[in-house]
Simulated scan of single mutants.
Amino acid sequence: MTSLSSLEQALVLETVRVTEQAALAASRWTGKGDKHEVDRAATEAMREALNALDIEGTVVIGEGEMDEAPMLYIGEKVGGGARRFPIDIAVDPVEGTTVAAKGLPNGIAVIAIAERGGLMHAPDIYMDKLVVPPPAAGRVRLDWPVEANLNVLAQSLERAVEDLVVVVLDRERHETLIQSVRRAGARVKLIEQGDVIASLAAAVRGTGVHAVMGWGGAPEGVITAAALKCLGGEIQGRFMPETAEQRERLRGMGLDEMQVYTTADLAPGEQLVFSATGITDGELLQGVRRFGGGARTHSVVMGHASRVVRFIDSVHLEEHGARVTIRV
């Protein structure tokens, strides 16, 4: 069996290379208004980078089923080389395709890896989520009223409810939630896309974000869980199927729409590595900055075994077709 330290030591910087290459490729399309090209470029670069690694990887969280290629589809096998670490992979080559295409903040490339069975295989349906930072982990409940959770969060952070900022996706379905947060005295920050990066911001001090609430994609919930397990934060989520077909698929995967799933349920693995690289500027990560002969990227990478979070500033030089990366 691969040890915790060997898997993390071997792959932590490799995962950064994967998200860096996806972000660099996507950055050539940022601001051009074509979200499909942003996604295509990042996906192709991410697949190429994954296939260069010494892994035996299976995509368990991807962008669709096999017939939707060239996206990194659920069940796709990636990797090569001699050592072949057997791992499960959750990817989102571009979280926030629309914001990246528009040149708006918080577009990122993201990946999480774990030992086999270390990441839940979640269906692509909605999930009601509650994300809180480490001081509030284990102290909130998705089933509680919004006001109760905000009071506990404020106490955990030793702040007033009026000081709290809650990120919510800007959707009509969240109108009641938004009213509840504001009525409790907290502030709402509405975002167009990007609940993974918003959840990371909530788990890191100094970003000005204290929680994430509301419905988002279940696959993004699994990716978020991998990061929060490394950071010590918490996500709670409940699947929200909207059709009979979605309910049947959920049951077929052995999942219960009435159950509240925790961080440990969504990312049960002990050999977890998470990486994200900024495509456009945001609260936590800077976007790709291009200059004559190269580009600069800003990434965050973390491992559950080491409990170390690294922010990596890399300069990628391109001369005569060759690439050289310098990490600071």
Rank of each mutant, 00 (worst) to 15 (best):
T2N: 14
S3P: 07
S5D: 14
E8V: 07
V16R: 00
V18T: 01
E20C: 02
A26H: 03
G33R: 08
E37P: 00
T43N: 09
E44G: 14
T58C: 14
T58I: 15
V60G: 01
E68S: 15
G80Q: 12
A82P: 02
R84G: 11
I89Q: 01
V94F: 04
V94N: 05
G96W: 06
T97E: 00
A100T: 12
A101M: 09
L104C: 08
G107Y: 02
D124Y: 08
V131L: 06
A137P: 03
G138E: 06
G138Q: 07
L142R: 06
W144P: 07
E147K: 13
E147V: 11
A154I: 10
L157D: 04
D163M: 14
V166A: 08
L169R: 04
R171C: 02
R171F: 06
E172G: 07
R173H: 08
Q179N: 13
S180C: 09
R182M: 15
R182I: 12
R183P: 03
G185D: 11
L190N: 11
S199P: 10
S199Y: 04
R205E: 15
G208E: 01
H210G: 05
V222K: 03
A226G: 02
A227T: 12
L228F: 01
F239E: 04
E245S: 14
L250A: 11
M253V: 11
E257P: 08
V260Q: 02
Y261R: 13
T263L: 09
D265I: 11
P268Y: 05
P268M: 06
G269M: 03
L272V: 04
T280I: 09
G282Q: 05
G292D: 09
G292C: 08
T297K: 00
S314E: 08
